[in-house]
Amino acid sequence: MEHSITLKAMRETHQNWFTRVTRGDSNRHVSDLAGISAATLGRQLRDNTLSADLIIKIATAYDESPVIALVDLGFISARWLHDVGTTTALSKATDEELTDELLRRLRLIGNEPVDELAARREAGAHVGTPDYDDGTVREFDYDPSEYAADSSPNEQKEREKRGEDPID
Rank of each mutant, 00 (worst) to 15 (best):
I36Y: 02
A38F: 04
T40D: 13
G42Q: 11
G42S: 15
R43G: 01
R43H: 09
L45C: 06
R46A: 15
R46T: 13
D47T: 05
S51T: 13
D53N: 09
I55F: 02
I55S: 02
I55G: 04
I56D: 06
I56K: 10
I56R: 09
T60P: 05
A61W: 02
A61N: 03
Y62W: 01
Y62F: 10
Y62D: 05
E64T: 01
S65W: 04
V67C: 07
A69C: 03
L70I: 01
L70H: 02
V71W: 01
D72H: 11
G74I: 04
F75S: 01
I76A: 05
R79Y: 10
L81H: 06
H82G: 12
D83W: 08
V84R: 15
V84L: 14
G85M: 08
A89E: 12
A89S: 13
A89H: 09
S91V: 01
K92L: 15
K92N: 12
A93S: 05
E96D: 11
E96N: 06
E96Q: 12
D100R: 10
E101Q: 02
L102H: 04
R104D: 12
R107G: 15
R107T: 05
R107F: 02
I109Y: 09
I109A: 14
N111R: 12
N111H: 10
N111V: 01
E112T: 13
V114D: 10
V114N: 07
D115C: 04
E116S: 11
L117E: 04
L117H: 01
A118L: 14
A118S: 08
A119E: 14
A119L: 11
R121T: 05
R121N: 13
E122F: 10
A123D: 13
A123K: 13
A123H: 07
A125M: 14
H126P: 05
V127C: 15
V127G: 07
G128R: 08
G128V: 04
D133E: 14
V137R: 12
F140K: 10
D141V: 11
D141P: 01
D141L: 10
D143F: 06
P144Y: 06
P144V: 02
S145C: 04
S145Q: 13
A148P: 05
A148D: 14
S152H: 08
E155K: 12
E155N: 08
Q156S: 14
Q156N: 12
K157A: 15
E158C: 07
R159T: 02
R159Q: 11
E160M: 10
G163M: 11
P166M: 05
